[in-house]
């Protein structure tokens, strides 16, 4: 069995790359492979906003990532600088800038590009979307 690191660069709901990333991740896990990290970079951080509110008859990608975490305990990490730039913040950043609202919480985590790089170093394969 192999160890994958998945990099998601495309936004949820406004492009197809993030959905493909989700399906690839799910298929890998179902085949018994390990996903050491799903790293959201560039517009990919928009996958993690809890303010994403698709209509009830539409596929909810943010919820799908959360369910994948619940089922397989995969790590879902955002690049913090890419996130802040795009209005995705956790309670910690909200507190720091005295904002009343935040839109990113567990199981998503904020992290740095260092996590992506060390993840790539340890993984058998990087697959970006």
């Amino acid at each position: 069995m192999s160890n994958f690191i998945i990099q998601v660069n495309g936004a949820a709901n406004t492009g197809s790359a993030s959905y493909t990333a989700y399906r690839f991740t799910k298929a890998s896990l179902e085949q018994g492979h390990q996903i050491s990290l799903v790293f959201f970079y560039q517009d990919g951080v928009l996958n993690t906003s809890s303010f994403n509110s698709p209509a009830s008859d539409e596929f909810d990608l943010t919820k799908a990532w959360i369910e994948l975490n619940h089922q397989y305990q995969i790590k879902l990490v955002n690049c913090v600088s890419a996130s802040l730039r795009r209005g995705v913040i956790s309670k910690m950043e909200a507190d720091e800038c005295q904002a009343k609202h935040w839109n990113m919480q567990s199981p998503f985590e904020m992290g740095g590009l260092g996590e992506l790089v060390t993840g790539i170093e340890r993984a058998d394969r990087l697959v970006s979307f």
Binding site: Y41, Q42, S81, A82, G112, L113, G114, L116, V117, T118, E121
Partner: peptide, 12 residues
């Protein structure tokens, strides 16, 4: 964002 990653990777 590519350059950010390049510099970070090099520092790692």
């Amino acid at each position: 964002e590519a350059l950010d990653l390049a510099l970070l990777s090099a520092s790692f």
